[in-house]
Nucleic acid binder design. Structure first.
Lengths: 221, 221
DNA sequence: TTTTGAGCGGAGCGCTCCGCTCCGATAACT
DNA sequence: AGTTATCGGAGCGGAGCGCTCCGCTCAAAA
């Protein structure tokens, strides 16, 4: 029986658990890079497991994607809560949240592409979206009460602004995050209503036209 | 012979010309909405012409896309030149250019998605990119010399910033452009080094959470 | 009016690629 | 060694794509 299990998992059970976390990480990365259209086979390949094992855990691609979408929302909620808890200043909390959300501090890649993707609605997703709204409301209300955030910027602006600041561009990893932070720096100036008017330097090195040429041209020919 | 043609085209020739412009407009719209992955058949359908007529004019999808990419770059060049010519103030010219580029004033939709897409390099594309660089250099240099634009913002930032401000989001038309302008307003504050510190109201109505719910959920189920 | 053929629209071919299933191989327990 | 749960991945069925091909249309020539 299942309830006869005692102690830590061993053998096949351990492998299954390891597969679970690998699968989760791989799905997060692949969906983040290529969106909902990413092939399931690449997720399995990157996780180092077979298709059979993947489909035993998630009976369909859609369920896997929905799970990642919820995980993405919960990640944003956690980042908002952390920012509020660790940054006493409301403005610093908001900035911290934006930076964390765009770089996904040590969480293995951003899930925003799936959060903003179009998938069938489920109750779980609705509930996660409600929690996200509550967390972002706290963040924004705090900044509004402190008078540091422009009044016409709402909590519903945050997901859209994040989607604008983190578009799918033909570059991934550090450089993409650096560019996202660069243009976040611009937007932050516009968000603030008090304090120093001109910001410090923009994040990261400025792009060069040679870099654009590489971005715009297909890899081989 | 062909050179015996005199006067205006009539009959089938007129239809062919009308098809040309319809095809161009349709390709612009479809590529703008769905990117390089858009099916050729939808372009033909929206143009109201058959596949045969489409492929008589463009021997491959790739050539059609490259043509639109060049058109997109040339449109940006034209918008930059127009902004420089009609706005005496360098800052006003820069703002005018950004707004025009994001809304594509009466040009039938933005072509930025194709400009930023990955396609094989061709000499024509390289030349168009060079002209684009020259035009954006003029725009940025003017603002730099006037001291109104932060020094660490370069002309190569402009295409990337435009891509960030105009991501493919699951909404098209007026509302998408309105949102793009909204977040452009934020970035513009960060770009300016002089003048009024706090901007006027953000463009457009603030998004509501209900709107986000509609954006994130699939159309039917 | 009749003939003609360039130009038209769209059905469908061939192919790629994807979600998903199935089964032989593998390895932990007895 | 035998048993059995679990694994990996080859392959199936089908959707969707770029592109071709062909019967039809209709303005112009005879």
């Amino acid at each position: 029986m299942g309830d006869t299990y005692t102690g830590r998992p061993r053998g096949r059970q351990r492998e299954a658990d390891r597969n679970d976390v690998r699968l989760f990480q791989a799905a997060r990365e692949v969906f983040a890079e290529r969106g909902w259209d990413a092939p399931v086979s690449e997720i399995a390949r990157r996780a180092g497991i077979g298709m059979g094992s993947l489909y035993r855990r998630y009976p369909s691609k859609e369920l896997l994607a929905q799970r990642m979408r919820i995980a993405g929302m919960e990640q944003l909620v956690a980042q908002a809560r952390t920012a509020l808890a660790e940054e006493p200043d409301p403005w610093a909390a908001l900035v911290r949240f934006f930076r964390d959300a765009l770089t996904d501090q040590g969480t293995g890649g951003p899930l925003l592409p799936l959060v903003g993707g179009r998938l069938p609605a489920t109750d779980e997703v609705q509930a996660a979206a409600e929690r996200l709204r509550a967390a972002l409301d706290d963040l924004v209300d705090g900044a509004h009460r402190a008078g540091v955030l422009r009044a016409d910027f709402t909590s519903a602006d945050i997901p859209l602004l994040l989607e604008h600041l983190a578009p799918r561009i033909p570059v991934t990893g550090e450089r993409a995050a650096s560019l996202h932070l660069r243009y976040l720096d611009l937007a932050l100036v516009g968000l603030r209503t008090t304090g120093p008017c001109r910001p410090t330097d923009l994040h990261g090195p400025a792009p060069q036209w040679e870099e654009l040429r590489d971005l715009w041209n297909a890899p081989d020919s």
